[in-house]
Amino acid sequence: MTKTNENPATQRFTSIIDQYKDVIAKVCSLYSSQSSPFDDLYQEVLVNLWAGMESYRGEAKISTWVYRVAINTCITWHRRNRRFTENTVPIDATVDPADTSADTAGQYRELYRLIAKLEPVEKAIVALWLDEKSYEEISAVMGLTKANVATRMHRIRVKLSRLANQ
């Protein structure tokens, strides 16, 4: 994807989204809805990453920064930017599991269905946990203490179990 005539900022941005596109897409897929379509959220996250690159000074790990931008965009401040999206083709929001067995696909659909019922902050914690982030890393992204993360994760499991049995 990198072109030789790209300036350093573009190269850096391209490198970031190449490395983290799955992370961003997964976060956006968890928060997408009819009022906030996947392609809209995804593009908004990329805009915020592009604009935020200038002010990013390496205070946090780059993965932490990317997660924060993606989650904050999805949770708090998403507004449809009609002018920016009018000429772009919507991204197909279908999730294609690497393993295409019917049973696994069914489990994914069930998992997404249950996670969709969680509150916005809970979804963020689950997304990070499913990405095998440690409680310490989750704490860095979320700005919560490790103990708080552990407590919330326990409550999320209980809540998912209750939702699954309904």
Partner: peptide
């Protein structure tokens, strides 16, 4: 957008 999620919320 870049601050920790809980602070941003």
């Amino acid at each position: 957008i870049s601050m920790p999620v809980a602070d941003a919320v």
